[in-house]
Amino acid sequence: MRNQPKYNFFKNTSYAIKGLQDLLRSETSFKIELFVAIALLPVIFFLDASITNKLLMFITLFGMLIAEAINSAIERVVDLVTLEHHPLAGRAKDIGSSVVFLSISVFVITWIFIIWESL
Rank of each mutant, 00 (worst) to 15 (best):
N53H: 05
F101R: 11
L24T: 07
W111G: 03
H85F: 11
S29T: 01
R91H: 08
D94T: 11
H85P: 13
L23C: 05
A69C: 10
I109C: 13
S14L: 13
Q21F: 11
S105Y: 14
L47F: 10
F101C: 06
S105T: 09
Y7R: 04
I32Q: 15
F107I: 02
I95W: 09
I17E: 15
A16E: 01
S103A: 15
T82Y: 08
S105E: 08
I109P: 08
I114L: 09
S72H: 11
I104R: 12
E33I: 04
Y15S: 14
A73I: 13
L65Q: 10
S26C: 02
K11W: 02
A69S: 15
F107R: 01
G90R: 11
G90A: 11
F10S: 14
L119M: 07
S97I: 08
L47G: 06
I32L: 15
V99S: 14
P87V: 07
V43N: 03
F30N: 03
T110P: 05
S105A: 15
F58P: 05
L119Y: 03
T110E: 12
S103K: 06
Y15W: 00
D79M: 14
E84G: 13
N8W: 00
N71M: 09
V108Q: 10
G90C: 10
H85N: 15
L83I: 13
F62G: 00
A37T: 06
D22Q: 04
M1I: 10
Y15K: 10
E68W: 03
S98D: 15
L102P: 06
A39N: 08
F45K: 04
I66L: 15
F30T: 02
S26W: 00
E68G: 13
E84F: 11
H86M: 07
S72D: 03
S29F: 00
I38H: 07
L61Y: 00
L56A: 06
E27D: 08
D79F: 08
F107N: 09
T13E: 14
F107Y: 13
F30R: 01
E68L: 09
E27M: 10
N3M: 03
Q4F: 01
S26Q: 05
Y15P: 00
F46P: 01
A73D: 12
L80Q: 12
S26L: 04
L56T: 02
